[in-house]
Design a protein around this nucleic acid. Structure first.
Lengths: 154, 154
DNA sequence: AAGTTTGCCTTAGAAAATAAGGATCAGTTC
DNA sequence: GAACTGATCCTTATTTTCTAAGGCAAACTT
C-alpha cells in the first residue's frame, strides 16, 4: 500500500503543477484510460501521497507585500513554553510556516504581512506578546528568488 | 480591474483550501449561481489573483524526510555573484524556496532532501559548488509546527 | 492447475462545466 | 429626466467530464 511506480510519480508531478487538470486530459498525457488514472489517483489520495488541492494565490495582489522570516528564541525556564508557543502560532493568520530547528535558535517563523508597519504591529502584539519569547531576529525578504517550487517527485 | 469584494475573497478562501471543489458546490457555499461564480473566478484568474492550482503532496510519504533552512553568505567581490547564484538555485530541485534577505546574511534557502546523507551531498555538490558562496549556516528542522498555511484573504 | 488479485479496458448513465441570451440596477451622458 | 453603458446576476441548453459497473488478461498464490 506504500509502493509507488513511475506512472504514479508522473501523475503526482503533473497534478502538482496543475491540480485542476481534467482527468481526461491527465489520462491522455499519461497514456492510460481515464478510469485507470482515476483509480490510481484515488489510491494515491487514500494512501496519503496527496493531501489535498489548493489554489495558488498571488500574495502581492492580495496586499501582502512583505515576507519576513523571524528567528525566535524561547526562555526555557517553564516546561510548557514550547507547546504554548506552538499553539499560539497556529492561530496567527500572518504565520504561514513555523518550524522548530536545531541550531542557534528555537523556531523559524515565516510570515506575510502588508508592510513594515503591519509587521511592527505583528511583532509587538503577536510574537513578543507570547510568554516565553526571549529574543527574536527579523529578516525581511527583499527579493523572492524562488517561490514554492514543486517537490521533486520525478 | 484590481478591485476585489467580499464575495471574491470568499471564493479565494474556499479555493485555497480546496482547489478541486466543484463549481456547483462552490456556488452553493457562496450563495450565487454557478455561472456567476464561474465568471468571478475567471476574472480573478485573469487579473492574477489566482496563479494556478496544485496538489498538496506529503513530502514524508515521498521520501523527503528532512527539511532544512540554509543561510548563505556570498562573496561580494565579483559583480554578478547574485545573478549567478539566483540562476543556479532555480535548477536545483532540492531547493523549494530561496529569498534574498536584509540582515546578517544574503540568501535564505529552504530545501527538502531524503536525509542527512542526502543533505551532506546537496551541500557539498550543489550549494558550496556555486561560485561566490563564502559561508553557509544550516538549520535542520526537527518539527514542522505549522506547514504551508493559507494566505489570510478573509 | 485453479483461484485470487491487480491493473487495465469499454460502456453507459449521472453530474458538472460552459456558452448563449436576457433581466435588473447603478452610474453616466446628453 | 431619458437613454445609454457596463456590471452582475440569472436560466437554459449543449458539450464535456466524471463515475460506477462489468469484463478481460497477466501475475502471483495456494
Amino acid at each position: 500500500m506504500t509502493e509507488i511506480d513511475k506512472i504514479d510519480r508522473k501523475i503526482l508531478s503533473i497534478l502538482q503543477g496543475d491540480g485542476r487538470i481534467a482527468n481526461v486530459e491527465l489520462a491522455e498525457r499519461i497514456g492510460l484510460s481515464p478510469t485507470s488514472v482515476g483509480e490510481r489517483l484515488k489510491r494515491l489520495q487514500r494512501d496519503g501521497f496527496v493531501e489535498g488541492y489548493g489554489a495558488r494565490l498571488n500574495p502581492h495582489r492580495l496586499g501582502l507585500g512583505l515576507l519576513v522570516f523571524v528567528e525566535v528564541l524561547l526562555d526555557k525556564t517553564t516546561p510548557d513554553v514550547f507547546e504554548r508557543f506552538a499553539k499560539a502560532v497556529q492561530t496567527a493568520p500572518e504565520v504561514l510556516e513555523c518550524h522548530m530547528v536545531a541550531g542557534g535558535f528555537d523556531y523559524l517563523v515565516k510570515a506575510r504581512v502588508a508592510n513594515m508597519t503591519a509587521y511592527r504591529r505583528f511583532l509587538g502584539e503577536t510574537l513578543l506578546a507570547l510568554p516565553g519569547v526571549r529574543e527574536t531576529r527579523t529578516y525581511a525578504v527583499m527579493e523572492e528568488v524562488k517561490r514554492d517550487a514543486p517537490l521533486p517527485v520525478g
